[in-house]
């Protein structure tokens, strides 16, 4: 059984039909990167996986449970899905440590000591054990995004969603965040990543999905989709995105 299974998903904002029938799944342990031009619906698709956007039609199954069913306990499903946002969305009134403990305490009902231990371990995992008491405003963008990753990891999620996690970062800070994500992938975390980082997708992803106009145009191993795309739309997009200076001469 796939960890996430999406069936015939449709989503519109007013008259704007953003997702036009998506069928898609993510297996346990798989790293899937979603690429595509802006406005293609990639972020909306990601936000439908934990129902931050409510689709008008279609179903989303997490571990076989239909979370679009109104009777489903959505908060319980969301606990298994960590999410990292483009704008970090750290809680500015809480320290890095408290950002990582608040949901453990209030949602998972862990003891203060246990939550503290898990939070410290995860902050260390993202390389920020020296910033435990810092507030978000005192951290760089890259550090904030790594705290956000630690916050999500502290809930012991089965799946991590990344919504363009490096798009709001200064170029020199992108590397730190990608390094953490690469490490997570190697540890076997199931990840669904919306990204513009083609080099990362090519290197880390098990599968790449190219979206355009609210549908998945093609998907497969990165060597095929990025290296040798079948569809003309994919080729046009990649030609525009892959600045020749960024292509690794392999």
């Amino acid at each position: 059984m796939a960890l996430v299974e999406i069936k015939n998903l449709h989503k519109s904002f007013g008259s704007n039909h953003v997702l036009r029938g998506i069928d898609f799944s993510v297996e346990q342990g798989e790293v899937v990167c979603v690429i595509g031009p802006s406005g293609s619906g990639k972020s909306t698709l990601l936000r439908c996986v934990n129902l931050l956007e409510k689709p008008q039609q279609g179903q989303v199954f997490v571990r076989g449970e239909d979370i679009t069913d109104p009777d489903c306990h959505l908060d319980a499903a969301r606990q298994q899905i960590g999410m990292v946002f483009q704008q970090f969305n750290l809680f500015p009134h809480l320290s890095a440590l408290a950002n990582c403990t608040i949901a453990q305490r209030t949602v998972l009902k862990r003891s203060p000591a246990e939550a503290d231990r898990v939070a410290r371990a995860n902050l260390e995992r993202v390389g920020l054990s020296d910033k435990i008491d810092a507030f978000p405003a005192q951290l760089s963008g890259g550090q904030q995004q790594r705290v956000a990753i630690a916050r999500a990891l502290s809930m012991d999620p089965a799946l991590m969603l990344f919504d363009e996690p490096t798009s709001a970062l200064d170029p020199e800070l992108v590397g730190d965040v990608l390094t953490v994500m690469r490490k997570l992938a190697l540890e076997g975390m199931t990840m669904l990543v919306v990204t513009h980082e083609m080099a990362f997708a090519r290197e880390v992803a098990d599968r790449v999905a190219f979206m355009d106009g609210g549908v998945i145009v093609e998907q497969g191993p990165p060597a095929d989709v990025i290296g040798d795309p079948r569809e003309e739309r994919t080729r046009t997009f990649l030609r525009r995105v892959l600045d020749p200076t960024h292509v690794e001469p392999t």
Binding site: L52, D75, Q79, F85, F91, A103, T106, A152, M155
Partner: peptide
């Protein structure tokens, strides 16, 4: 709005999102 979204994504109920975040 991202604050409430981040809290919801962590599995907090709407009451907790309001009170804690």
């Amino acid at each position: 709005k991202g604050q409430a979204e981040a809290a919801e994504a962590l599995g907090m109920s709407s009451g907790k999102v309001m009170r804690r975040v």
